[in-house]
Nucleic acid binder design. Structure first.
Length: 125
DNA sequence: ATAATGACTGGGG
DNA sequence: ACCCCAGCCATTA
């Protein structure tokens, strides 16, 4: 529940738990995570949660991209470049326009039982 | 309590 | 298919 002495909110914890379930080589959408947590319109907040992650966390933040299949961070800058490298190292393929085929690499999500476990985990780590 | 802040989205043009 | 924009919403200051 604590990251670098910083207490995070329940919603942020739920986001982190959900993202931890995305397997290597797969990607999820900000909106997809938001819907999974029962807050379908909190996509921006999901981005904010990942934004506030400390470096060195065990959350595979790189596996979350936008609904267009592209990396939201500026891919010309260091952050976006790192995200792309990390994903490619997991086998994720980018087309010539920097897009990921969500049909191929999109995470199918959790079943209901796992979803409840995620929510529960976030509540009581 | 109020206002600002994003690693977002869906729809319209 | 691409660009623009209004709507969104948990967190911060």
């Amino acid at each position: 529940m604590c990251y670098n002495s910083v207490m995070t909110s329940l919603f942020f914890e739920q986001v982190y738990q959900a993202v931890r379930h995305i397997p290597p080589g797969k990607v999820a959408t900000y909106g997809q995570i938001a819907r999974l947590l029962g807050n379908p319109r909190a996509a921006r907040t999901v981005g904010w949660a990942l934004h506030s992650l400390p470096s060195g966390s065990d959350v595979p933040w790189q596996r979350v991209i936008n609904a267009s299949g592209t990396i939201s961070l500026d891919t010309r800058g260091p952050g976006g470049a790192i995200q792309r490298v990390l994903l490619e190292a997991e086998g994720v393929v980018f087309d010539d326009q920097g897009r990921v085929d969500l049909e191929t690499h999109g995470w199918t999500g959790l079943d209901l039982v796992e979803r409840d476990q995620v929510l529960q985990l976030a509540r009581e780590p």
